[in-house]
Design a protein around this nucleic acid. Structure first.
Lengths: 191, 191
DNA sequence: CTTCCGTTTGGCAGCTACTCTCAGATTAAG
DNA sequence: CTTAATCTGAGAGTAGCTGCCAAACGGAAG
């Protein structure tokens, strides 16, 4: 059972995020100051930066990627990496409530529209490739530094990237696009 | 013939870059202030920001990508996109003087080691994918919004990414790694 | 309930990237 | 030489972010 302290922390954290997203939505990311967010969440600036190392991190902290990763690792071994990845993404997305999906959608739109956020998001994505490469290597029984494995993971991430960079196919359309991209990859990227 | 004004501007710009890179090398990116760079280049801070919109841009402005793109477009039409891309990269890299290669290498190392720079570099890369997609589409006679084309470009960029993210295979080793990755892609990413 | 310890918080000072404005200098053109 | 356009320097101001210290708070022991 979490003590009062931990509950307060979680509440404060959530409140800061909530107020921040609301202000970003209303008056834009750039023209919202940390001072405003802190005031709206009724904490001091010091406290804001204790919960989030930077203004960007209020938007960026992603808890979905680890879920997808875990689902990928836990997928049945007889699946090919592409099948396992598709299943993992699908399971995580469909496991979200409608409200969560809407939040994620807003988060994604904001991230894509603000250059700094977009950049840092991409960086997080590519930095995660290393871990993913290990998982893929283990799945197919190869070494992680094998060129074939690394190129494959790069291509897989690249396909995901190409889908994500597409502007608004709607919150649902992404999955279809993603599936189509993976199908192409599975077929050896014919042109 | 460029007037005195333009020559002065080019000289100032180059000097700012030179001094900045020197300071970054000596005392690190974060602990070098714009004030120091401006002082070393003998200009005011105002002037610094007139030449470079941000401290990051002193490092990031890349003139190689457009060259690769042009070379790709200009490549013989009978080449496959992968062959054309490989030829373009190779031509541009080998067209650099030893000094230029060393500079690029230093620039790349600095970019990869500083998170903000790495992130913005990735963003520039992915933002350029749109243009590249059009070129590929034209080359293979398909529409740019074709999923096959987009997935292909994504995979191609992804493979390049996987190579670039690898830490120091030496300034020459990159090309070999890159070729190996492209060969894998050409073979349909077998695992 | 009180006391005591460790954690959390707020307020403040300070640094730095970056913007805006304005006056003065420099270059180009008539 | 004079005039117009452009470039530069200086200063003030904003905002993100850090570090420091004292006060408030939560949790456990007596």
């Amino acid at each position: 059972m979490p003590g009062l302290r931990e509950r307060n922390k979680a509440r404060t954290r959530a409140e800061i995020r909530r107020q921040a997203m609301r202000l970003f939505r209303d008056q834009g990311y750039a023209s919202t100051t940390v001072e405003q967010i802190a005031a709206a969440a009724e904490v001091s600036q010091s406290t804001f930066f204790r919960y989030f190392p930077s203004k960007e991190d209020v938007v960026l902290r992603d808890e979905l990627d680890p879920l997808v990763f875990d689902a990928f690792v836990a997928a049945p071994p007889e699946l090919t990496p592409i099948q396992a990845f598709r299943a993992a993404v699908r399971a995580v997305v469909q496991g979200l409530s409608a409200e969560q999906q809407a939040e994620e959608w807003e988060r994604h739109r904001l991230t894509q529209s603000v250059p700094e956020l977009r950049a840092r998001n991409l960086d997080a994505l590519t930095q995660g490739m290393g871990l993913f490469t290990q998982a893929v290597a283990q799945r197919v029984g190869r070494r992680p530094d094998d060129v074939a494995v690394r190129a494959f993971v790069g291509a897989l991430v690249g396909v995901g990237l190409a889908v994500l960079l597409d502007e608004d196919p709607g919150p649902t359309g992404y999955l279809e696009l993603f599936d189509a991209g993976l199908a192409q990859l599975e077929a050896g990227l014919p042109l």
